[in-house]
């Protein structure tokens, strides 16, 4: 049969030589290798104290973004829910009442916005679908929990901290994927 590549090698089935039969040279060679590894740099990262930097394309838990004045961007258009391949997003829209202009940027807003983190596959399609830059995948891991209900994230968990009242937390939650405003 014609070999596909030139890399294929014939397996060597010669009987072992004496040096191979007494095993010892090979064993000492192996022990020297493991011994040299004692002095190598350790690959371990002690997690809670030390953290590895995220990759720029990392997609973690979602945040619902606010604009520079702290108003929620989301208008509850439902495009993210449509785009979602895992059908993890549900929402209910509501009309902005007079006097709520400092809370919501547009006339319509999401009264309820839920993402089921057990269904979510963190593909980022919701982020691409959003016309208002309202939803972003941040740099946080999905945490562990004891019951399923607590994996359904509502607005309390999703909406980002207020950029004026709590600027540090806002910057931290935003990550580096969201468009800076």
């Amino acid at each position: 049969m014609q070999a596909l590549t030139t890399r294929a090698k014939q397996v060597d089935r010669k009987p072992m030589t004496l040096a191979e039969k007494i095993y010892l040279p090979a064993i000492f060679k192996g022990m020297a290798i493991t011994f040299s590894h004692i002095f190598k740099k350790k690959a371990t990262i002690s997690y809670p104290e030390q953290k590895r930097p995220f990759s720029p394309v990392f997609r973690g838990l979602h945040v619902l973004n606010r604009d520079a004045e702290g108003r929620e961007n989301c208008t509850a258009c439902g495009l993210c829910a449509v785009a979602c391949p895992a059908e993890a997003i549900t929402m209910e829209a509501a009309e902005r009442q007079p006097g709520e202009e400092h809370l919501y940027r547009e006339e319509k807003y999401a009264a309820k916005y839920e993402i089921n983190m057990l269904r979510c596959i963190f593909c980022g399609l919701c982020e691409e679908a959003c016309p208002k830059d309202a939803i972003y995948l941040s740099e946080t891991f999905a945490p562990s929990n004891y019951n399923r209900a607590s994996f359904i994230y509502g607005k309390e968990e999703l909406v980002i901290p207020h950029p004026k009242e709590n600027p540090d937390a806002y910057k931290k939650a935003l990550g580096n994927r969201a468009k800076k405003n």
């Binding site: 493991t34 590894h37 004692i38 190598k40 350790k42 690959a43 371990t44 002690s46």
Partner: peptide
Amino acid sequence: AVMQDRKGPT
């Protein structure tokens, strides 16, 4: 651990 470039129990 040290032979596998790890830290072991800490």
